[in-house]
Simulated scan of single mutants.
Amino acid sequence: MSSSYLIALGSNRRHRVFGRPREVVRAAMEELAALGTVTGRSSVFSTDPIGPAQRRFANAALVIESEYDPLALLAGLKHIEREFGRRTGRRWGDRVLDLDIVLWSGGKFASHTLTIPHDEFRLRDFVLRPAKMIAPNWRDPVTGLTIRQLSARA
């Protein structure tokens, strides 16, 4: 049985092959098709860094239909991050690629490695703005608000 997932993408470091962060995000969107069928892609936005990150980010969102359960999809996302050169490091630091599961059609999910919905997505314009382009009516299973409503509050 297939599920829908809303994935947030971000980059603020150059990649030796793909180039600038904007191109890294676009290349990652193509790579995500290996995990299912991409049914929606936002534009790529330039956003200010948060935390200790120093460089501006390129951010986007996509919707993917996948046969993978949440933990298997997370493993696939982490594999793609590593393929793009992502290394573990400090939280909110500069990174070549960051892929997060924000929402899924199954509602809430929690394990020791993954929480859906993503804990802080409701406060992050860099997630809500691209998500609103492709999934404005998806509802947060915690608040019951749509992405459009959450975006208006952010």
Results as ranks from 00 to 15, higher is better:
Asp98Glu: 05
Gly76Leu: 10
Asp125Lys: 07
Ser42Gly: 03
Ala110Gln: 14
Glu65Asp: 04
Glu30Phe: 01
Asp69Ala: 11
Phe57Gly: 02
Glu81Thr: 02
Arg14Asp: 12
Phe18Ile: 00
Ala58Trp: 02
Leu73Arg: 15
Gly40Tyr: 01
Gly40Glu: 00
Leu77Ala: 08
Ala72Glu: 15
Ala33Tyr: 04
Val96Tyr: 08
Arg55Ala: 09
Glu31Pro: 03
Phe18Gly: 08
Ile64Ala: 06
Asp48Pro: 15
Asp94Gly: 02
Phe18Leu: 12
His112Asp: 13
Ala33Cys: 10
Thr113Asp: 13
Gly19Trp: 05
Ile101Asn: 06
Ala28Pro: 07
Ile80Asp: 14
Ala33Asp: 11
Ile80Trp: 13
Ala75Lys: 15
Ala58Ile: 03
Ile80Tyr: 09
Ala72Gln: 14
Leu123Lys: 14
His15Tyr: 08
Val25Ile: 00
Pro49Asp: 15
Arg122Asn: 09
Ser111Asn: 07
Arg122Ser: 15
Gly89Gln: 09
Ala75Phe: 10
Thr88Asn: 11
Asp125Pro: 00
Thr39Met: 01
Arg122Glu: 14
Arg14Trp: 13
Gly36Met: 05
Leu99Phe: 11
Thr37Pro: 00
Asp125Leu: 05
Pro117His: 01
Ile80Leu: 14
Ser105Gln: 11
Val44Pro: 01
Thr47Arg: 08
Arg122Ala: 14
Gly107Arg: 07
Ala34His: 07
Asp98Trp: 04
Asp98Gly: 06
Leu35Gly: 08
Arg41Tyr: 01
Ala72Lys: 13
Glu23Phe: 02
Val17Lys: 15
Leu74Gly: 10
Arg82Leu: 03
Glu81Asp: 09
His15Ala: 06
Phe121Arg: 00
Ala60Ser: 10
Trp92Tyr: 14
Val25Arg: 00
Arg124Glu: 12
Arg87Tyr: 03
Thr113Ser: 08
Arg122Leu: 09
Leu103Val: 02
Ser43Cys: 06
Ala27Leu: 07
Arg82Asp: 08
Leu114Thr: 02
Pro21Ile: 08
